[in-house]
Simulated scan of single mutants.
Amino acid sequence: FYTWNPGAADSRRGLGLGLALCKSIVSAHGGVITARDNPPHGTVFGFTLPLEEVKLHE
């Protein structure tokens, strides 16, 4: 994992684990993470999760 352009934003360095953690959580729930270019700068991330009925125990 790495951080690109660490001087940007508020100058605090992260470990670069955020998207990996998000992918793990979304995948564990049967979902998919997507990324697309956002010209002229940046990236747009999204995710989908399967819709299932939740049965409550009465």
Rank of each mutant, 00 (worst) to 15 (best):
residue 20 A to M: 06
residue 21 L to P: 00
residue 42 G to V: 02
residue 29 H to C: 14
residue 37 D to V: 09
residue 56 L to F: 14
residue 35 A to N: 02
residue 20 A to G: 08
residue 46 G to I: 05
residue 31 G to M: 09
residue 1 F to H: 08
residue 44 V to K: 02
residue 15 L to H: 10
residue 35 A to V: 09
residue 20 A to R: 03
residue 17 L to I: 15
residue 8 A to Y: 04
residue 38 N to R: 11
residue 44 V to W: 00
residue 10 D to S: 07
residue 39 P to A: 06
residue 28 A to M: 04
residue 38 N to W: 02
residue 23 K to F: 09
residue 3 T to V: 14
residue 33 I to V: 15
residue 13 R to K: 15
residue 57 H to V: 07
residue 52 E to Q: 15
residue 52 E to Y: 11
residue 39 P to R: 12
residue 14 G to P: 01
residue 40 P to A: 02
residue 39 P to K: 07
residue 43 T to M: 09
residue 53 E to P: 01
residue 39 P to M: 02
residue 1 F to E: 04
residue 56 L to Q: 04
residue 35 A to H: 05
residue 25 I to E: 10
residue 54 V to G: 00
residue 11 S to D: 08
residue 36 R to F: 00
residue 43 T to P: 00
residue 13 R to M: 11
residue 44 V to R: 04
residue 9 A to Q: 09
residue 8 A to W: 02
residue 27 S to N: 13
residue 47 F to V: 01
residue 16 G to C: 11
residue 58 E to W: 10
residue 9 A to N: 14
residue 33 I to E: 10
residue 38 N to D: 10
residue 1 F to K: 02
residue 32 V to T: 15
residue 21 L to S: 06
residue 40 P to Q: 01
residue 58 E to D: 10
residue 49 L to D: 06
residue 34 T to S: 13
residue 35 A to L: 03
residue 4 W to F: 13
residue 6 P to I: 13
residue 48 T to L: 03
residue 11 S to Y: 08
residue 44 V to I: 09
residue 26 V to Y: 08
residue 41 H to Y: 06
residue 42 G to K: 06
residue 55 K to F: 07
residue 24 S to M: 03
residue 55 K to A: 08
residue 45 F to R: 07
residue 23 K to H: 15
residue 52 E to R: 15
residue 42 G to A: 03
residue 27 S to W: 05
residue 18 G to M: 06
residue 31 G to R: 05
residue 12 R to T: 12
residue 33 I to F: 10
residue 18 G to R: 07
residue 38 N to I: 00
residue 53 E to R: 14
residue 43 T to V: 15
residue 31 G to K: 05
residue 49 L to A: 08
residue 16 G to Q: 09
residue 7 G to T: 13
residue 38 N to V: 00
residue 41 H to N: 07
residue 15 L to W: 06
residue 33 I to Q: 10
residue 35 A to Q: 09
residue 4 W to A: 15
residue 44 V to F: 00
residue 12 R to F: 12
residue 34 T to H: 12
residue 55 K to S: 09
residue 54 V to Q: 03
residue 38 N to T: 03
residue 10 D to E: 07
residue 53 E to L: 07
residue 31 G to I: 08
residue 27 S to C: 03
residue 7 G to Y: 12
residue 15 L to Q: 11
residue 41 H to V: 09
residue 14 G to K: 02
residue 5 N to L: 13
residue 11 S to E: 10
residue 25 I to N: 01
residue 19 L to D: 08
residue 48 T to N: 06
residue 55 K to P: 00
residue 20 A to Q: 07
residue 44 V to S: 01
residue 1 F to A: 06
